[in-house]
């Protein structure tokens, strides 16, 4: 097949981009995460991909860029790939689709958007002194990804990666991670 004269199928390009797995969470693709903002195929076979980075501190960003380039190059007729990250609109966790949320949960990471009541255990003080009002941990409760119980608490704002925090399930006594919201 002659390159340059082949018509690039935009649907195939979109599928290739959206199927790129998150390097840190392989069951989840960047399509499920809602990171794909825009695609354009120029007449000369150049594909331009605009992605929304999740957390700006995510070291996987450069890997994702490389993986997207590699994936799109496999599509028939593609001559060159240009990936650009943009901040407008800002990515937020509500861009994660239903499949992505379920895959996260299966992976042991509580997805955002799990609004459930969460009792505040004895001995965990409220934070009375806040310079800037911000939602307390109990305003962002998550069911346990293992047993589904809703009496869980946030133990730490910072987990093993910039996008996750640390929780604990009072029911099954299992620590787990949750995808951050902001």
């Amino acid at each position: 097949m002659t390159t340059g004269s082949t018509t690039v199928d935009p649907v195939a390009v979109r599928r290739a981009v959206e199927d790129v797995p998150d390097p840190e969470l392989p069951p989840v693709t960047i399509g499920m995460l809602g990171m794909v903002h825009d695609l354009a195929v120029a007449d000369d076979g150049t594909v331009r991909v605009e992605l929304l980075p999740t957390f700006s501190g995510c070291p996987a960003t450069e890997m994702i860029e490389r993986d997207v380039v590699d994936a799109v190059r496999e599509v028939d007729g593609v001559d060159a790939v240009v990936v650009r990250f943009r901040f407008d609109p800002p990515w937020t966790p509500d861009r994660i689709d239903a499949t992505g949320r379920e895959r996260l949960r299966e992976f042991g990471i509580a997805p955002p958007g799990g609004a459930v009541p969460s009792p505040r255990p004895e001995g965990r003080p409220a934070l009375p002194l806040l310079v800037t009002p911000s939602p307390a941990a109990d305003a962002d409760p998550r069911p346990c990804p293992y047993c589904g119980a809703t009496d869980t608490v946030r133990d730490s704002d910072f987990g093993p990666t910039p996008c996750r925090d640390l929780r604990f399930c009072e029911q099954c006594q299992q620590p787990f991670e949750a995808f951050k919201t902001f």
Partner: peptide, 20 residues
Amino acid sequence: AALAIKLAHELRYHREHADH
């Protein structure tokens, strides 16, 4: 402006940690 708006979202966890 776009980058400032993006980073302001992320600063929430730092603020909560500092205030805590």
